[in-house]
């Protein structure tokens, strides 16, 4: 009867790590304060429309439960409701893994950074089953379509435009945001290198 397992959301706030509910539901069979939570282990059950969904830790994060949710049985929770405060991370690389979303100092070896013209959702491809507009190595010139940006359900193409720090002929070094990621206007989208003629 149990349905697809769910994975706890991770939030870090300074040195504190929180694990939060991944969906709306009644949270039950919670771990008690003091329990050890191994990476990927089960940490409770979320009931949704009467069906139990096993809830697990992320595969790369474990620790000691410092604080558990107040009622450990049938607690109504929403998406993002904090369920556990996790103690010192036991896995060496876990903290780094947690922060894996922030791009390392890209651009260090690149000639320039092409920034997002708008705030919205950036897409690498025109449709899920189509190839990306550009991949690392693609040569970009003025007008090359590099992706689409979705703003309020409206899609617009994003085109490469040379400018200060951006060469007229550039080679894409790497895409700095994932397919479908949210971007702010002015946020780095592409790292590019100059193409030597």
């Amino acid at each position: 009867m149990s349905a697809a397992p769910l994975q706890l959301l991770v939030e870090t706030d300074g040195d504190t790590t929180w694990l939060a509910a991944p969906a709306v539901g009644l949270f039950t069979e919670a771990l008690a304060a003091g329990a050890l939570a191994a990476p990927g282990s089960r940490a409770g059950t979320l009931l949704r429309l009467g069906r139990p969904h096993a809830v697990h830790l992320p595969p790369d994060l474990g620790g000691t439960v410092l604080e558990s949710c107040p009622a450990r049985v049938h607690e109504p929770v929403g998406y993002g409701t904090r369920l556990y405060r996790l103690g010192p991370l036991q896995e060496g690389g876990a903290r780094e893994a947690l922060q894996g979303g922030t791009a390392p100092a890209d651009g260090a070896d690149a000639a320039g950074i092409f920034a997002s013209p708008q705030t919205g959702r950036f897409w690498h491809r025109a449709a899920p089953d189509e190839p990306p507009f550009v991949t690392p190595g693609t040569v970009l010139t003025a007008g090359t379509v590099v992706g689409m940006i979705e703003v309020m359900k409206t899609f617009a193409t994003v085109v490469y435009a040379p400018g200060p720090g951006l060469p007229a002929r550039a080679r894409l070094a790497r895409l700095l945001v994932g397919d479908g990621d949210e971007v702010e206007a002015g946020a780095p989208l592409l790292a590019v290198e100059t193409v030597e003629d």
Partner: peptide, 16 residues
């Protein structure tokens, strides 16, 4: 994953 999530909405209505 929010306003079109049928199950999530019904569960949220029930538990509140």
């Amino acid at each position: 994953r929010s306003y079109l999530d049928l199950e999530g909405l019904v569960q949220a209505a029930r538990q509140t």
